[in-house]
Amino acid sequence: MRGRPKLGIWISLGAASLLLVTLAAKAFVPRHVQQASPAGRMIPAVSTERIRFSDGDQQQLRIGDGSTRVIRSLLRVPDHMQFGEFAWNDHGVPPGRIWLRIDLSRQILSVFRGEDEIATSVILYGQDETPTPIGNFPIRGLEKNHRSNTYDAMMPYTLWLTSDGIAIHGSNVRQGLATHGCIGVPQDFAQRLFGIVKRGDLVTVVR
């Protein structure tokens, strides 16, 4: 849905999505999101290697309830990600529980399997009048082909987060658009995400 443009978004190094709090208080270089084609497009990894952290250099990532989670590895992504772009690479990542982190200030969603990031995408989020809520939200349900009765709009690959209709779903992710509180992701990314999550998986939203 149309709303105020979300401009001046920055993405941190590695996860392209994370405000990391390190035990050594290391700094991460920000990256800027630029405008792109509204069509979703997966970008290749910069290299086959991941950004890995040793046991003595563990990274802690803050989540929606104020606590932190340990991160072992992050994706390498290009210096710039555009609206509609996403990265996905789970090669070599061990089995683990899927969880999602949404950083509204950076306009980024990150997907983790256990302690390793496997995907990241630029997102749309709620306009000022209908903001996206902050906190931890277990996925309440999944719906592949939902249509919003309120806004007469398709919401493909919907992951329900709240009882009043906030969800993650496929959208036309381009500069100048916002939502009525939902998280919009490129449809190709939404389809991939829909295939790996299940009811009860954690979605944490921070600003």
Rank of each mutant, 00 (worst) to 15 (best):
K198C: 12
T120G: 12
K198Y: 07
L124C: 13
L109M: 15
I11Q: 02
D116Q: 11
V77Q: 03
Y125K: 07
A190I: 11
E129G: 12
R97D: 14
F86K: 02
H169R: 05
A36E: 09
F137S: 01
I51V: 15
I168C: 04
S37Y: 08
L109Q: 01
R192C: 05
S47R: 08
T132M: 12
S12A: 12
A45W: 03
Q82C: 14
I108D: 04
P95S: 08
L104W: 01
K6Y: 03
L193D: 04
V197L: 09
D65Y: 06
F189P: 00
A45T: 12
V21A: 12
D201C: 09
S67T: 14
R147W: 11
T22H: 03
N145C: 06
G135T: 09
G165F: 00
Q107G: 15
Q58I: 11
A16R: 02
P5R: 06
A39V: 11
R101N: 09
D188E: 11
L19F: 05
S163L: 09
R192E: 05
Q82K: 15
L124P: 00
Y157R: 04
I139V: 15
Y157A: 04
L61P: 03
G84T: 10
L193V: 07
D188Y: 03
S121K: 02
L61T: 09
S73Y: 10
S73M: 13
V21L: 14
T68K: 11
N172R: 10
G184Q: 01
R4N: 14
L18G: 00
I11F: 02
N149V: 09
D128A: 15
Q82V: 15
R4T: 11
N145I: 04
L20T: 05
D65C: 11
I166Q: 00
R2K: 08
I123E: 03
F86P: 00
T132C: 13
N172A: 14
G141Q: 10
Y157F: 15
M81Y: 04
I168E: 00
D116N: 12
V33N: 03
L75Y: 04
W10K: 06
D57T: 13
L75M: 10
N145W: 06
Q187I: 15
